[in-house]
Every structure is written in C-alpha cells, then in structure tokens.
C-alpha cells in the first residue's frame, strides 16, 4: 500500500497523518514533505496510527527528520504509534531517541 500524507495546520503547528506503508517506495516523497514541514513550522506532529509497515528506509527518514528538528530547535513529535512502528523502534532501541510517549495497546509487546 502506497503512502498517503494528510496535512493540517493550525497556529504555527502542523499535523501530518501518514497512511499506508512507510517503506523504501515512500521515503523520497516523505523526505521532501518532512523537510518542507520542518523548515516552515515550529512544531510538527506525525500521527502514525495508520502506518501499516515501516522498514529501515522509513525509519532512517524519521531519524533524519528528528535530528534536523533538534538541530533547528523546532519540535518533531511522533504520536499514536501503530504496532509496526512501535516494534521497529523497539527493535532498534530508538524509543528514547525520539522521546515521545508511546501508548501501548494489548497486541504490542512490553
């Protein structure tokens, strides 16, 4: 499933909802969108509840975006992680790197 990006902004804050697979096929477009978002908005929230799959390339773009925002002093928040995202973050021990609260549901491993 290809990735769909829905954006909604209010008072200097951008909400990006990612829908579909965050994989190698989507990363080029996602990078552009994230770069634009981070340069334009002081706070960006990525809503991940509709991410079905995430691979190394997708994760890598998220890491780069987070680093970029830290560098610029802006905020990049990840929220409503889907199971796939939580598993990938845990596999790579990156939960603390992003520093976002993760809401665990039943099917997610501790």
């Amino acid at each position: 499933m290809s990735l769909d990006i829905q954006q909604e902004s209010s008072s200097g804050k951008l909400q990006m909802r990612l829908l579909g697979d965050l994989d190698i096929y989507a990363v080029a477009a996602l990078r552009e969108a994230l770069l634009k978002a981070i340069t334009q908005f002081h706070e960006v929230e990525l809503i991940l509840e509709d991410v079905c799959e995430i691979d190394g390339a997708g994760l890598q773009v998220l890491i780069a975006a987070k680093t970029e925002s830290l560098y610029r002093g802006s905020r990049l928040l990840l929220s409503a992680h889907s199971v796939a995202v939580v598993q990938a973050l845990q596999l790579c021990r990156l939960d603390s790197f992003f520093g976002d609260p993760i809401v665990l549901t039943k099917e997610m491993p501790g």
């Binding site: 080029a28 990078r31 190394g56 390339a57 773009v61 680093t67 021990r93």
Partner: peptide, 24 residues
C-alpha cells in the same frame, strides 16, 4: 543490547532517502 548508529546519516536536506546509512 543494541545501539542504532546514525553517525553516517546526512542532514535531512542533504540525504538521499533511498541510500542506506544505517549501522548497528
């Protein structure tokens, strides 16, 4: 134990999203 290495990862504006920069 695991550490994801992002040292090789260029800035978001510079990176080629389809190139792998990851290390573990």
């Amino acid at each position: 134990g695991l550490v994801t290495l992002t040292d090789a990862l260029p800035a978001l504006s510079m990176m080629d999203a389809e190139t792998c920069y990851l290390g573990f």
